[in-house]
Simulated assay, not measured.
Amino acid sequence: MSPSNRVTIPDLADELGLSVGTVSSALNGKSSVAESTRKRVLDLARLRGYKFNTAARGLRFGRPTTFALHVPLAARTLSYYMQFAIGFADAAATVDVDVVLSASNAAGRGEAFRVDGAAVADWEASSGGIEELIHAQVPVVAADGFPCNAPSPAAIVQVDYHGQIHRILESARAGGATRVALVAPDDSLQARWTTDVIDACAAACAEFGLPMQTARFPIFGTSEDLTELVRSLLADADAPDCIVFGGQNLAGYAASNLQLGTPGSAVPWIASCAGDQLTEIGSSTITAIDANPIALGARCATLLHELVTAESAPSEPIVEPWPSTIAWGDHWPRLDA
């Protein structure tokens, strides 16, 4: 061990019988290191409480220097995650913290030893990278919960999807809706958000006595595929007159392609649980939940900074409600008014 009792790369290399360069490359996630060797290095680094140089640099500067942001692979097609990332990065920049972007379903590759804190939007069940961060005692803030059987993050910023979906379906029923279909993400988005949306719709429909059917749709699905799915729902003998869409843009596609969402149409009641700013929020025919992802990302960054710079870690995960709003379609009853 080093005289200061801080574990160093040479300490790890000596104990493992590896070169300093190999250990350094493994901790930096470089592809030149065999996966078996990387695992040995990361396991020992966690066991010995190793802290990477970015942490030491942060100590010298008196502040954190780097945050990781994990988003699903769906970020490449959905503006929600881009807006979240912009808000997060802008807020991090105000406290001079750099941001590293990662896919939330990436395997752990030593990131925990290179960042001071991390945030995740829609934490997916297959994400070993986020679990590695938590096991290494790196503070993690999760937007909209975490998967079952995953370790608890330091903080959760949570949209009240149960409450908002309850309000939406209560309004649809008051307007005359009698049968509900939920188009929810399939296993292409294995996030707690998907489960929350399904559970919320089922609970509200049970309370209001509305028959409900659930269809699953890939998060990367095309507008044409969605149109065919909705047509198949409408061809059923018990076709819905209210459809709740779990993915961003889907309600917009359905309303446009099939002329739905207006009084007298086949489905007068169209709702989105992840409202898109261009196609759904502000639409006269669609009711949408607006989580304000730019502001949500910014809050996750500021909360993470508070956690990283605090004198001690919280004894229990912080759960902070996030104030979303509902953008109502013109013909929907406003029960809260």
Rank of each mutant, 00 (worst) to 15 (best):
I9P: 10
D11H: 14
G21V: 10
V23E: 10
E35G: 06
K39N: 11
D43L: 09
L47W: 07
F52K: 07
A55V: 14
G58V: 04
R63T: 11
L69Y: 10
L69C: 11
V71D: 05
A74E: 12
A75G: 06
T77C: 05
S79E: 15
Q83C: 02
D90V: 10
D90K: 12
A91K: 01
A92V: 02
V97K: 06
D98K: 10
V99C: 04
L101C: 02
A107K: 12
G110N: 05
G110L: 04
E111D: 04
F113Y: 11
V115H: 10
G117N: 08
V120D: 09
A121K: 03
A121Q: 04
A121I: 06
D122S: 14
S126D: 15
S126E: 15
I130E: 10
H135L: 12
H135P: 00
A136L: 04
Q137H: 12
P139G: 06
V140Q: 13
A150L: 00
P153G: 09
I156T: 13
V157A: 01
V159R: 11
D160L: 07
S171I: 00
G175P: 09
L189T: 07
A191L: 08
R192I: 03
D196S: 14
C201L: 09
G209I: 11
L210K: 12
P211F: 01
D225P: 00
L234F: 11
A235V: 02
C242Q: 11
A255C: 15
L258E: 11
Q259F: 07
P263D: 01
A266P: 06
V267S: 02
P268E: 01
I270E: 01
S272F: 05
A274H: 03
I281S: 03
G282N: 03
T285H: 01
N292T: 05
I294R: 14
A298T: 01
C300T: 12
L304G: 05
L307Q: 10
A310Y: 12
P317A: 03
P317T: 03
P323C: 05
P323I: 05
